[in-house]
């Protein structure tokens, strides 16, 4: 069952198209990471999902319903962690918990307190006086306390030190293990989420360049390094079939990031003698991301 979906979503600010015909779906229990450079449109998409903004075209759906129209009832089952902790600065964690408790059908007060104690977050200090990491923990705890079906996290580790980052993801993983919550997150911390996400979407300039399972992505992306036989490395026979994304000349030869790797095509390249001593290495999610968005841009209709 699809917990979260957008269909042909478009968002406009004046003349600028922040999102252009974006479609993706997240099934129940999955962890989805939406990646993109700043200004790619991630926040606009999250805003549409949370009913904060009305799309110029297309639809956003959570639990099959329209978050703009049914925001309040949908959010009763959604935990939201925004990019900037925006709880009222004068309220303490205890007061925040009491305030939120009255709004949700269920509220795990004890679990929230235990979590905050575990991370040594003072519960009677005004929110505004907490450190950035503590604020993040409070926001996450508030999002987890109503036992939501869906978690939406907008860059939850922005500005946090490595320890705080670990604790945030640790809580998230615990939640996943205990309750199988569906997670939709945007992030720049690709290394940290690499182990956690099932599915990845990459936004560039408002367009969704790819929307794929991480495993499959990692299967088909490789970095090749070889010494080209001919002058034009890009035209090395056998290379085109591997769908190169970026080809760069290095001192010792050529490095190419390819998106269509499989063993057969690689052995064709190897045997084609156009490439001397080809080596192949895998790419981390961050490297894949950089290769995809680093390109000037896909041609019309072209996918990566």
């Amino acid at each position: 069952m699809t917990v979260l979906a957008v269909e042909e979503l478009a968002v406009r600010y004046g003349d600028r198209l922040a999102l252009d015909d974006v479609s993706l779906a997240v099934p129940a229990g999955a962890v989805y990471a939406l990646l993109g450079l700043n200004g790619a449109g991630k926040s606009s998409l999250v805003r549409c999902l949370l009913g904060e903004q009305r799309p110029a075209a297309g639809r956003a759906r959570i639990f099959g319903r329209d978050p703009w129209k049914e925001r309040a009832s949908i959010l009763a089952e959604v935990g939201v962690v925004p990019e900037e902790p925006d709880a009222p600065p004068a309220m303490t964690a205890r007061q925040l918990s009491r305030f939120c408790a009255s709004l949700y059908p269920s509220w795990d007060e004890a679990g929230l307190r235990e979590r905050l104690e575990r991370f040594a977050v003072p519960q009677d200090l005004p929110f505004g006086r907490l450190s950035k990491g503590q604020k993040g923990q409070v926001m996450l705890s508030l999002a987890l306390a109503p036992s939501p079906r869906l978690l939406v996290l907008d860059d939850p580790t922005l500005g946090l030190d490595p320890l705080a980052r670990r604790s945030v993801f640790g809580e998230l993983i615990g939640e996943l293990a205990d309750r199988g919550t569906t997670v939709f997150l945007t992030t720049h911390d690709l290394a940290a989420v690499e182990g956690i996400v099932d599915r990845v979407g990459i936004l560039k300039a408002g367009k969704l360049l790819l929307d794929e399972e991480l495993e499959s992505l990692k299967r088909r992306f490789r970095r090749l390094s070889f010494a080209p036989a001919g002058e034009d490395a890009g035209r090395t026979p056998g290379l085109a079939e591997l769908a190169p994304v970026a080809v760069a000349a290095r001192g010792w030869g050529v490095e190419a990031v390819v998106s269509g790797y499989d063993e057969e095509r690689f052995s064709l390249l190897r045997s084609g003698r156009g490439a001397g001593a080809p080596e192949v290495t895998s790419l981390s999610l961050e490297e894949i991301f950089l290769a995809v968005v680093g390109r000037p841009g896909p041609a019309q209709g072209e996918s990566v």
Binding site: G170, G174, L176, A177
Partner: peptide, 14 residues
């Protein structure tokens, strides 16, 4: 599953 996932920072489903 839970503990290993947290330690390795990976999806418990994995």
């Amino acid at each position: 599953v839970r503990d290993l996932a947290r330690e390795l920072q990976i999806n418990p489903a994995t």
